[in-house]
Amino acid sequence: MHGRERRKRSTRRALRSAVLELGLERGWAEVRVEEVAERAGVSARTFFNYFETKEDAALLDLFVVPDDELAALEGPAPRLWHALTELFTADVERLGGDGADVPRFMELQRRNPGLQARQMGVFTLFEGRLSSAIAARLPDDRDGRLRAGLMSGACITAVRVGLQAWTAGGWQGPPGADVRDAFGLLAPAFAR
């Protein structure tokens, strides 16, 4: 990674960290973008180069899967479910590896139902993209469309429940292990 990209990632991390700290310290309603920027050592204008709103900075960077990766998914169903398991386990591991304080972001969202709802909205938008990608690998009939919708919804649920289990377990080990286990419990329904 080049110097400019490193600086951009560092600034983004600093802004997200400031949002998290201020949100947990003082309560979400009291957080102002100007304070976030000041704590991160940048201008408010710089904040808006990275995020449209303070809420955007408080969301987990989950399901950041480009269209080309979704297009590369392989079928039939058993291989497809395995590919989905690998894709989302890697996405969760990337999230944890990026230095994101996942448990504390989840706590901030738990304390603020509006943030939690916004996070679920992001998940729902991604679920539609995922369902289309899965449907492209299944028969183009009613059962194929139902299966695609169920599989995409199950993926979102497996990631969410796996992260909740990881958090409840005291954040032991990598978060991907709990996500992989959640996918494994669903495998009998989809890997056949």
Rank of each mutant, 00 (worst) to 15 (best):
V42F: 11
R32G: 10
V64A: 13
D56S: 10
R26M: 09
F105K: 12
R26Y: 02
E38K: 02
P66M: 03
F63N: 07
E30M: 04
R32D: 05
L84I: 02
E35N: 06
G99A: 02
L115F: 14
V42N: 11
L115T: 10
G27Q: 05
F51W: 03
E38W: 08
D101A: 02
D56K: 14
Q109T: 09
G97T: 00
E55W: 12
D61W: 09
T89Q: 02
A58S: 09
D56G: 12
P66L: 04
V36P: 10
E38Y: 03
F105G: 15
L62P: 13
V64Y: 15
F48G: 13
N49W: 00
A40K: 01
F63Y: 15
L115A: 06
L60T: 02
A72N: 09
R110A: 13
N112V: 06
E52D: 10
K54M: 03
D68V: 15
W28M: 00
E25H: 10
D91V: 04
D98L: 05
V31H: 04
L70E: 08
A37R: 09
L115R: 05
A72T: 15
D98M: 03
R45I: 05
D61T: 08
P66A: 10
P78G: 01
E30A: 07
G41C: 07
A90L: 07
E93S: 00
E107S: 02
A100L: 15
W28L: 00
R110V: 15
D91P: 13
V42Q: 09
L73H: 07
E38M: 04
W81V: 13
L59W: 13
T89F: 01
L115P: 06
A77F: 14
L59E: 08
V102Q: 02
G99N: 01
Q109K: 13
D98H: 00
A100R: 12
T85F: 13
M106K: 03
A77T: 11
D101W: 04
A57W: 11
L62M: 08
K54G: 07
R45H: 12
V31W: 08
K54L: 07
L87A: 01
N49V: 02
N112H: 05
D67R: 12
P78M: 01
A72P: 15
E30L: 10
R94D: 00
E55S: 12
R32T: 10
G41V: 01
R39M: 03
G27F: 03
R79S: 03
L70C: 06
R110K: 13
Y50E: 07
P103Q: 04
L60G: 05
F47A: 07
E74L: 01
V92E: 02
G75F: 05
E38I: 05
E34A: 09
Y50I: 02
N112E: 10
Q116E: 08
V64P: 06
A72F: 11
P113W: 11
V65M: 05
A40Q: 06
A40H: 05
E69D: 15
E74F: 01
